[in-house]
Computed example of a mutant assay.
Amino acid sequence: MVASNKVGKKVFIQSEDCPIRDVVAQIGDKWSILILFSLVGGADRFNSLKSRIEGISQRMLTQTLRELERDGFVKRTVYPEVPTKVEYELTELGKGLTKSVWGLVSWADKHHDEIRAARHNYDNK
């Protein structure tokens, strides 16, 4: 929940009712957006996702997929086959999120060189 203080400035309350803390911080971790965008093209299997997201460990992929499933962004389907086949895909909520986040991802891509240069300049002061 966002409130205002006496001078009209926003105050971000430490509460599950605050959408920034409850939702945005959750998907703003190191891996969630990469996983979501890896699923934009359709359902995929665990090992395929792992091979397409460089640097993610099996444990972190498992944990992040569970969190995304818990939040309703990803659907996990287990097929009764031998060996067991499991696929992950975006839910409608997840598709809506990726559409909403696409502007930020595009902006980051466009301005990445500027940001890296600013960091370099800052670090060299």
Rank of each mutant, 00 (worst) to 15 (best):
M1W: 12
V2P: 06
V2M: 13
S4P: 00
S4N: 13
V7T: 13
V7I: 12
V7L: 12
G8I: 07
G8D: 07
K10M: 03
K10R: 14
K10S: 07
V11W: 00
Q14R: 12
E16R: 11
D17Q: 08
P19D: 02
P19W: 06
P19N: 03
R21C: 06
D22L: 03
D22A: 14
V23Y: 07
V24W: 05
V24S: 07
Q26T: 08
I27R: 09
I27A: 02
I27M: 10
G28I: 03
D29K: 12
D29V: 09
D29P: 07
W31I: 00
W31T: 02
S32V: 00
S32Q: 02
I33T: 10
L34Q: 10
I35E: 00
I35D: 00
I35P: 00
F37M: 07
L39H: 00
V40Q: 03
G41N: 12
G42K: 02
A43C: 02
R45W: 02
F46V: 07
F46N: 06
N47C: 04
L49E: 08
K50S: 09
K50Y: 09
S51E: 13
I53M: 10
E54A: 11
S57C: 06
Q58N: 14
R59Y: 07
R59L: 11
R59P: 03
M60Q: 10
L61R: 10
L61I: 15
T62N: 12
T62W: 12
Q63R: 14
Q63D: 11
L65P: 10
R66S: 15
R66V: 08
D71A: 14
G72A: 09
G72S: 04
V74Y: 13
K75Q: 10
R76T: 14
V78W: 04
V78E: 15
Y79W: 05
E81G: 00
E81H: 05
P83I: 00
T84H: 01
K85N: 04
K85P: 02
K85T: 09
V86A: 01
V86K: 02
V86L: 03
E87V: 15
E87S: 04
Y88I: 01
E89F: 01
E89D: 03
E92G: 04
L93F: 04
G94I: 04
G94L: 06
K95N: 12
L97H: 09
T98Y: 05
S100T: 12
V101S: 08
V101G: 06
G103D: 13
G103E: 13
L104N: 03
V105F: 08
W107G: 03
A108P: 02
D109I: 06
D109L: 13
H111L: 05
H112K: 15
H112L: 11
D113G: 02
E114M: 08
I115A: 12
R116D: 08
R116S: 06
R116T: 08
R116Q: 12
A118W: 14
R119H: 09
Y122I: 15
D123K: 10
